[in-house]
Nucleic acid binder design. Structure first.
Lengths: 148, 148
DNA sequence: TCACTATTGAGAAGAGTTTGCAGTATACGC
DNA sequence: GCGTATACTGCAAACTCTTCTCAATAGTGA
């Protein structure tokens, strides 16, 4: 059912392969964006992604970052979420859903936490709600240990 | 701990009372926005709220709707969430957290569902994560019964 | 009723994201 | 390796949602 998670696309070569399978091409901006998102320690805004891409190549355009993220999202390589207090989207490598997010209202940081809770939800939904769940996002807003 | 939920503010008079307690005033736009959000059958975008407000008074400005929602949010009368596929915020009357959201990717509708899952999460978090949870949003994205 | 000032409407500004276009460069066939 | 088709890029303008500025208006307590 699931196609390609980030742990199956480690190298640029692998990225190129799955891009070409779709009729797309492997380009410099795409390699850089993938490298940044894949090696990120958490959720990144487009601004953060672009900044890190620019460390390697300042000529990469913001539009290309947006377009690349949209493409990767379609390929299920990355995932967008509207966490955070500002309006900006955040991006992370696609992953199975067995975790949840802790969003700190004070510093804006987003932590991941594992646990079987999301699986509990999935099981609950399977019990005849008529709703076919694709993604389960458990978002907890509050104050993190550092800020309280 | 919790201050004022929508079920404690049924009438304009009650709204006026708690507004004046804070040094605010009861105005036409505020009455209308509260009436619209309170009686809504689900999450509304600012655009939808404004449209319904305009049915009663077309002279109410979009800025006032935004400002009123921000105020009500601060008063914990309404709650903002970034559900949905587009970037627009959605608003609903504030409520205790014992429910979760089902967001249909196809028709964009948002359903509420009750259950003890959110309480399970809260109990889990209380167990020494160092994270002080304010709001818990369980967002399930998928396809609703009507669209599948 | 009066005066104070919170609130409003109008429009401009801001932030984040998208789109159109002409030039560039990747990937496939030879 | 080389040439060609076209996917992709950078740039800039446009678009959407939200916030801000400010003069005018209208609740509220006295």
């Amino acid at each position: 059912m699931r196609r390609a998670y980030h742990d199956r696309v480690e190298t640029s070569q692998e990225l190129g392969t799955i891009l070409r399978q779709r009729g797309n091409r492997l380009t410099g901006p795409r390699q850089l964006v993938w490298e940044v998102v894949r090696s990120a320690d958490g959720h990144l805004t487009v601004e953060e992604i672009t900044a890190r891409v620019h460390e390697a190549d300042p000529s990469v355009n913001l539009s290309s970052v947006y377009r690349t993220l949209a493409l990767f999202s379609d390929m299920e390589l990355v995932r967008e979420s509207n966490l955070g207090t500002d309006g900006a989207s955040r991006w992370e490598p696609a992953h199975p859903d067995d975790h949840f997010h802790l969003v700190c209202e004070s510093c804006g940081r987003v932590e991941h936490h594992g646990g079987d809770i999301v699986q509990t939800v999935r099981a609950h939904l399977a019990g005849g709600h008529g709703f076919r769940a694709a993604n389960i996002d458990l978002v907890v807003t509050g104050t993190c240990a550092d800020c309280s």
